[in-house]
Design a protein around this nucleic acid. Structure first.
Lengths: 192, 192
DNA sequence: CCTTTGCGTTTAGAATTTTCAACAATTTAA
DNA sequence: TTAAATTGTTGAAAATTCTAAACGCAAAGG
């Protein structure tokens, strides 16, 4: 099981690749399908490699994560030491050019925690549609400042400040300052 | 015309992207179709964005170039000064992990020359199927050594050594040494 | 214990892509 | 200048993907 996951990392196998990414982001097939505007059946078939999706479908699906096509094919899950990670081993993810993430650890399956280093360039804005379906998440600002909206609350966080909320509350991150903001976040979705 | 090519660089537009890559490699729709094992009609439709290809089709097509899916989506044709290029501006191409290329200049359309920096890791082998359909090409070794086969001739080239041949003769590059080989090559296909 | 809920899977039919073969336009060669 | 060859495009049929609606299974709650 964990072997299969490791193997699948480098593969061209689109189905396994999609499944891994989906699970890393803590989404069910149905939830991703809803966000992407496709049916859950389509995602199921793709993940089983019973069909080879069209670019347009795959793009729609990845937009629901969100993840660019380039990142999807570039993402590297290749095995490494399970405990220590050098900076350049952390898989990089960029959807909008202004926002980039780095995953801390890869084998999220079977783990309780996911961790990200997130970089928001000045002007970056996640929009308010990024609701995750279950679990909780928290983070602490390392440098720069970031304006976080959670439900009806909003606050601009500076280095050392932090947040913690249930993921099913709509939330939004905006960098209204003029320098990049780096923060470390963690999430604990039971769906992992 | 040249404007369209510049614009197309950054785009998600798969059709234009494929067309650009195909032209950079000096291939016709039919020739690429033959190598890829698809029909020329399919490539035509894709390049016009009248259909959105399946991943399996796109992969087959890119294998005929050859170019990986990751590189295809990562390749950056974005505009820059037309005369000077810094190292990191040169679009990187990797098909096999052991072989990587960097294009010198992007706007090959309308130019007579294409130039590549090529890196062959120890053990790298292009195989003998890489025949380009017309034109001539030449190169000079910068570091390491490379064994080149052209038709019935074969020679191991060391730094400073060079080659020059008609592209329609079957040719093959192999790094039989134990250090990476860097070479600069140029080609002049009339098909550009 | 039973019901409910949520998960991934499956199947038939609708929608889309791909092939095959022909076409028009351009280039090459005679 | 004409004939032959080559290129990209197009239309109808074949093949594949996607949807919509079900299914089986497991976990959670009453």
């Amino acid at each position: 099981m964990s072997l299969a996951l490791q193997d699948a990392g480098m593969t061209d196998d689109i189905g396994t690749r999609l499944k891994l990414v989906r699970q890393i982001f803590g989404l069910t097939q149905r939830e991703l399908a809803r966000r992407a505007g496709v049916t859950n059946g389509a995602i199921s078939l793709i993940e089983q490699n019973r069909v080879s999706p069209s670019i347009s479908s795959l793009k729609k699906i990845l937009d629901g994560i969100p993840l660019s096509l380039a990142d999807f094919f570039t993402l590297n899950f290749s095995p490494s030491d399970d405990v220590f990670f050098t900076a350049d081993e952390l898989p990089k993810i960029t959807h909008q050019p202004e926002i980039s993430w780095r995953l801390v650890g890869r084998k999220t399956k079977g783990r309780a925690l996911g961790m990200l280093q997130e970089v928001y360039q000045p002007g970056a804005d996640t929009g308010d549609t990024m609701l995750r379906h279950e679990g909780e998440e928290c983070g602490i600002v390392v440098s720069g400042s970031i304006t976080v909206t959670v439900g009806v609350q909003e606050k601009t966080l500076n280095p050392g400040d932090a947040y913690y909320f249930k993921s099913d509350i709509p939330h939004r991150f905006r960098n209204l300052g003029d320098e990049p903001c780096v923060l470390i976040s963690a999430n604990s979705p039971p769906t992992f």
